[in-house]
């Protein structure tokens, strides 16, 4: 199998991840259906999916590793390379574009020092355009890790970037239980 893999040998998957696999597989009438849930699980554990991970998933669900690679390469959310500490996804599709998502993207590229489609040299941000994420009435929307930020105006790009940068210093980031109406709840 080909595909980007990080230079350092990848650490083992967490014991919780390994323990969850049989539970997930047992839910389905057929093992192979657990392919996507296991890939999500691995990606949540490691941040991306390595060749070894794909071999592991293949073994779990009883298919050839190639059949797992086929799945990984088909779905935009699965990735084989590491990303930045914050994954910033700006919706590009028409409803958000009409509300200024292209200008917002340009603003974020500057404010985060990160061209679209790339990870900033310091590894803090990965900035991407994504297609419609079903929140079209609140555009432009930005999905950051698991949180959905609505009505992020292009003229506020700098302020928004500053908010994201501040989260890098917040040890409780991502630990808050979601509250209705907040970006974590909507994500």
């Amino acid at each position: 199998m080909h595909g980007p893999s990080s230079s350092a040998p990848a650490r083992a998957l967490k014991p919780e991840t390994l323990a969850q696999a049989p539970v997930i597989i047992a839910r389905y009438p057929q093992r192979r259906s657990a392919t996507m849930p296991l890939l999500h699980l691995v990606q949540e554990d490691r941040g991306h999916i390595t060749q070894e991970d794909m071999h592991w998933v293949a073994e779990q669900v009883g298919v050839a590793p190639m059949q797992v690679l086929e799945v990984v390469t088909f779905y935009p959310m699965f990735r084989q390379a590491a990303i930045g500490r914050r994954h910033v996804r700006v919706c590009r599709t028409l409803s958000c574009a009409l509300r200024g998502s292209y200008a917002l993207m340009e603003g974020l590229e500057k404010a985060l020092s990160c061209p679209r489609g790339e990870t900033s040299p310091d590894g803090d941000f990965t900035l991407e355009f994504v297609e419609c994420i079903a929140d079209c009435g609140c555009g432009p929307v930005v999905h950051v890790d698991g949180a959905m930020h609505e009505n992020v105006q292009a003229e506020d790009a700098e302020k928004f970037a500053a908010k994201l940068k501040a989260t890098l210093k917040d040890p409780s980031y991502g630990q808050h239980p979601p509250v209705p109406g907040t970006p974590e709840w909507n994500g």
Binding site: R32, S33, T35, L39, V61, V71, P76, M77, V130, E131
Partner: peptide
């Protein structure tokens, strides 16, 4: 996992089968 065509009912079924 982010694929539009998996909203189409038979694409969705294939996806549910792990493909």
């Amino acid at each position: 996992a982010g694929s539009y065509v998996c909203g189409e009912e038979t694409g969705l079924i294939e996806s549910l089968e792990g493909k």
